[in-house]
Design a binder for these strands. Structure first.
Lengths: 237, 237
DNA sequence: ACGGGCCGTTGATCTGAATCAATCAAGCCG
DNA sequence: CGGCTTGATTGATTCAGATCAACGGCCCGT
């Protein structure tokens, strides 16, 4: 996908804006404000109404929920190119999850009013928004399946494999271990053990925040669903 | 929400169609075909391209995924009023989950072409589609939080409480126990123990497929997140 | 350079839920 | 009406992963 150079001089990629017409895109980018946030900074409070649409250019943003009891969960980790919170901005509803920077981030912020006006005028943008929500839904479906049918080691292996585009190579993990563990539904201790177990099996090598994966296919081979999981659907009810 | 009487004589409710203009709605309902399917019947195969949009009028439909290994997961259980697969129909993409009747169902099927044409012409329908995808996304967010932060008993209690509209009353559970257990991420044995544990605690009474709940609030009180769950987000990284 | 706090790792123990196995209730068909 | 298949329940056992606790390294600021 070709990058689009905004008036701010930053390259903008991501499926949402590329689906808009050039005129719409120029309009939106003209209203955009670039910002940088340090690791750990809150970007969006839980249940807040979104007055801006954020485009993640660099870094990593975690979507987490905290219940009154104090327990928090990392629901999703967003990578560069993603926009959020799409539906909260377009539908004028509160966003049920908080967004926090898990690594130093560069973001583009577009006023919600502009985005809504553009979506009204440009059907392609609305279509792309539906595509993005569908994509987010599918990612959560995958996560639910993972949580229900795979053990901790398999979930960790899949997480790394998904970050690796090529068949072999290195993955950068800029997020703190605790955030990854929360995203994967386990404790930091369990994540550490899973990762070191995979290293002991020769499937990867840990170098601080870099992980070398000699063979992505081998990593995924570990992830076959457990023969008898907590998962049986009624066959032929 | 007022019911809309279709040419087929069935009452149609649900947020998707009520958002369309009367003309669009009449057009879609004119093309609709009513059908009834028995418990256990497949409605939509996994990864299939959807040629029809289904509206669930009565019964219960399960969305499940099966991986080659044979393990299956119940991702979501749909109630009357829901439409599926919205995004697969509108975006012409394959639906990643299979749909199966968990109870005898009455459905309305609308050809995909009609729905796409209507969405093109009627902006309200597209908007409603985005709303519905957002709703589905939020339901999955809730499910992920449940799986990560609540134990089996709490998940079972929340499932029942969510089916109960009033503060007290009876819930009908037409679905087989195995399907519910799969939706909740546990085995049928664990679900049985959780349910009977709640009954022993006086929070509900089991009568076959009917469950009496004397106090919904008490049921939900059980569900406070575990003080220290597998859930800590990085605080002030 | 030095202290201190935080993050990640490692070890020991405990527990919730899966698994294995058997029983029981209930449709359903012949 | 009785046998048979299927689903729900109960019990015994096992195990993955949470919890509790301690340690080491790294980065921070002074």
């Amino acid at each position: 996908m070709p990058g689009i150079r905004s008036p701010l001089g930053v390259k903008v990629t991501g499926p949402l804006l590329t689906a808009a017409s050039p005129a719409t895109r120029a309009q939106l980018l003209g209203a955009a404000v670039a910002l940088a946030v340090p690791r750990g900074a809150p970007i969006l409070a839980q249940e807040a109404e979104a007055d801006r649409l954020f485009l993640l250019l660099q870094g990593s943003v975690g979507l987490s929920t905290a219940e009154e009891g104090g327990a928090a969960t990392m629901v999703e980790i967003l990578s560069p190119g993603e926009a959020f919170p799409i539906s909260a901005v377009l539908l004028r509803t509160a966003h049920p999850v908080a967004a926090v920077a898990l690594a130093p981030c560069r973001l583009l912020a577009i006023p919600a009013e502009e985005v809504r006006a553009a979506a009204m005028a440009d059907g392609g943008l609305m279509h792309a928004a539906l595509e993005q929500m569908t994509r987010q839904w599918r990612l959560l479906v995958d996560q639910v399946v993972d949580l229900k049918t795979r053990d901790a080691t398999q979930r960790a292996a899949r997480f790394l494999a998904r970050r690796l585009s090529a068949a072999r190579g290195a993955v950068e993990i800029p997020e703190p271990r605790g955030a990854i563990a929360a995203r994967l539904g386990m404790t930091p201790e369990s994540l550490s053990r899973a990762l070191h177990g995979l290293e002991a099996a020769g499937l990867l090598r840990l170098h601080g925040r870099r992980v070398d994966v000699p063979d992505r296919a081998a990593l995924l081979r570990i992830c076959a669903p457990r023969p008898g999981g907590a998962s049986q659907a009624p066959r032929r009810v």
